[in-house]
Amino acid sequence: MIRDITLGKYYNADSPVHRLDPRTKLIITFAYLISLFIYKSPAVYICAFIFLLSATLVSKVPFKYILKGLKPVWFILIFTSLMNLFFTGGEPVFSWWRINISREGIERTGLMLSRFMLMIFGSNLMTLTTTPTRLTSALESLMKPLKVIHFPVHEIAMMMSIALRFIPILVDETNKIMKAQLSRGADFESGNIFRKVKSLVPVLVPLFISAFRRAGDLAMAMEARCYHGGEGRTQMNPLRYARRDGAAFAVFIFYIITIVFWGSLIPRITG
């Protein structure tokens, strides 16, 4: 059954990383993800790893939670690394029967694996230390300039935060309905694909109905509190950059300088 969705699962703790302005975390995470794709040198990935490791240590999030983020993608990871390992041409290091493993293959697999893992762990760290509400208000604030071209920034941020808010509720609801139908003798596992899809109808219909019911209730509750869109709306806790955000940016810029140094200067000197 559907469980353990780490997406948007916030780990509650009190740490400097948690207290950072969500915009800072969003910008740094975004830039960090890009930085993973600029250089191919292993030294850069070691730097990226050290940066992530120290951020995780400061954030007080247990490693177990960060590793959980791999769960939904581990199959794809293994599959692509095997593909890369076996089907990259080049000078063979190891061959047996029809399998050839080349030096290039190993390098490429290592590169891809470290990129993916660092990407997943990095973005996971952000969602684990930032509540979905703060994240969407950060997005709203960062996208504000788009208002000039009449882009509905507030509405989109509101939709996102509502959607995020409802994910865990709908997951719970799905589990409940599945259990209820199981107790009426439903069978979601056996049979071919058509039977399986058909067996989901008794779950999907009640799920949709409850989603619509909740949406209706929510709309009514919002209207009852005079919600009328973003016009003139202020926030209870407006986002403000603090000194620690400056410090975070400073650390991040130091990281960027380090990888630029390792990534482009060192190969030039040695090469």
């Binding site: 409940k176 259990k179 209820a180 139908q181 009426r184 069978d187 008794p202 219909v205």
Partner: peptide, 20 residues
């Protein structure tokens, strides 16, 4: 699966599982 036919469970708010 057969056992669940012998022991019926009516969940809280069972009307939320109606679908047909």
């Amino acid at each position: 699966k057969r056992y669940r036919g012998h022991v019926g469970l009516v969940f809280q708010y069972p009307e939320h599982q109606l679908f047909a």
